[in-house]
Design a binder for these strands. Sequence first.
DNA 1: CATTAATCGGACAAAATTGTCCTTTATTTG
DNA 2: CAAATAAAGGACAATTTTGTCCGATTAATG
Lengths: 144, 144
Amino acid sequence: MFSKACEYGIRAAVYIALQSLEGRRVSVNEIAEEIDSPIAFTAKILQQLSRNKVIHSVKGPTGGFEIERTDMDNLKLNMIVKAIDGDQIYVGCGLGLKECNEDKPCPLHDKFVAIRTDLRHMLESTSLYELATGLEVGLTYLKR
Amino acid sequence: MFSKACEYGIRAAVYIALQSLEGRRVSVNEIAEEIDSPIAFTAKILQQLSRNKVIHSVKGPTGGFEIERTDMDNLKLNMIVKAIDGDQIYVGCGLGLKECNEDKPCPLHDKFVAIRTDLRHMLESTSLYELATGLEVGLTYLKR
DNA sequence: CATTAATCGGACAAAATTGTCCTTTATTTG
DNA sequence: CAAATAAAGGACAATTTTGTCCGATTAATG
């Protein structure tokens, strides 16, 4: 469904959000350790998220990554997915046809669009704040 | 969503089903031409489908690929997807966690499972016959 | 101002996926 | 039986994705 990069990206963003709720800024090393991901690869992904304003980065000692509490409600999963995978998930035919649309649909068009619309709504409505607080109260887990 | 191999596989299977409705057996060359896919790669995928009893292959002159009319109703998309991609789509955590389940769910678990269940139902309920007849009556298209 | 801790960015490496080529095997037909 | 046709299968190549390494840049602190 998602690329590995995107999986790591979401996990990292949720972890950063969680720590930001406590006022802590976190380093790549800590993030990779806590979400069990390859350090250097995770660093690349965090750069993408930073460039796309999903997370905020600070260089130098005491630096690291953080997410403003005020942004957290408005930061939806689809922004992370778009920053990393682009709009692959939203665009294009399920069977890989170049010219597939309502007027000239592939055999799977309607059924595929239905699923993808659900997925899109889910990603557009799920905020980092929501996911981070679920972790905070122990309802969900990030490691392993 | 699906791998390229799986996209080609579904398109090929639907085309074979369509031609089988007319009693025609089709060659790899014709299939690749008609669904606009790389010939040799398509041949590999057809081998997989053949080994998994999704389609029937006949060697030699007048040979080619076909699907029994009586099978067509029972041949569902999920069988093609499973033959090519395995059960990747059905199994595993949306965020890539090793130990994610109802008891110890990742932050996205419930929402992800909901989408995936819909996808599974769609694949399990959509038959090749249904897709082939849609093509036959000109409701849908396979090329480009 | 030197040291140190952190991200940034580019080049490279490994692995997986996608795609090609060529030989072998099976089968039909003259 | 020989020739021709089509799938089967193995080896290889290209591309994309995943992952690593290392030097450059930025900023805090004694």
